[in-house]
Computed example of a mutant assay.
Amino acid sequence: MHVNARFWDRLAPRYARMQLRDPEAYEKKLAMTRAWLGPEAQVFEFGCGTGTTALKHAPHAGHVTAIDCAPAMIGIARQKAAEAGIGNVAFRVGDLADMPDSSAAFDMVMAHNVLHLLPDRAEALARVHRMLKPGGVFVSSTACAAGAPRLFRWVLAAGHALRLLPLFNPLTADALRAEIAATGLGIVEDWRPEGGRVPVLFLIAQKPG
């Protein structure tokens, strides 16, 4: 288990109890995403955490496959699915790199609060492109911390160097847009919620049909 998995495993119970910082923004993201779903939609989410977003979208899709590297996160997600009686979501412990990526199997791939944590974002985005069906969409919400206070960025870097915190790449919104566009996905929706210590970029990008 790598350092990120160990960190998120320890954090899982506390993470599950955390309140949304901006419920209004979260609901808007859900609504924007659901506009691209349908009753037969096959959805994949990586870095799903305790499964909240996957479970929110499940009633609007055919099936959702959701993975996370932390077994404790997946355990909580499965419990939440069972308690809610939601049966069209499969929660699995795993990494995006372990997923088959050549079958164009999914109508939607989601990555929320995870792209800035990846050591090889370019490879991950290329894999997402391959996993999508023609016309499928990639939905992401990503912290773009390049403009965050210097002390905040220093603490994150020092914590990772000491193996206390996961990797946290300080992205800019423009750089992330360019990386996604470089895979051949076309950005069709782009929204930046106001407020918050760290700017967030929510976007939807489509694979050509």
Results as ranks from 00 to 15, higher is better:
A126L: 11
L125C: 03
K56W: 08
L11M: 12
V43G: 10
F152Y: 15
P59Q: 10
G195K: 06
L96V: 15
R177N: 03
V109I: 10
H2P: 09
P100K: 02
K56Q: 15
K28E: 15
A146H: 03
H63F: 12
G159Y: 06
D174Y: 01
E24I: 11
A54L: 10
E189W: 01
V137R: 15
R150I: 14
P193R: 06
A58F: 10
K80V: 05
Q206S: 14
V3W: 12
W154H: 09
P149H: 00
W8D: 11
R130I: 05
Y15S: 11
I67W: 09
R153T: 01
G62L: 10
Q206E: 15
A111V: 11
Q19C: 04
Q206K: 15
W154L: 15
L30R: 12
E194Q: 14
R17E: 15
P208E: 14
L11F: 14
R121K: 05
L30P: 07
M108F: 03
M131V: 09
L37E: 03
M131F: 07
H2E: 14
E27D: 08
G136W: 10
A143P: 00
F168G: 03
A58K: 10
V64R: 06
G196L: 00
H112M: 14
L96D: 03
R10Q: 13
G85W: 06
H116C: 02
D22H: 14
A31L: 10
I86Q: 06
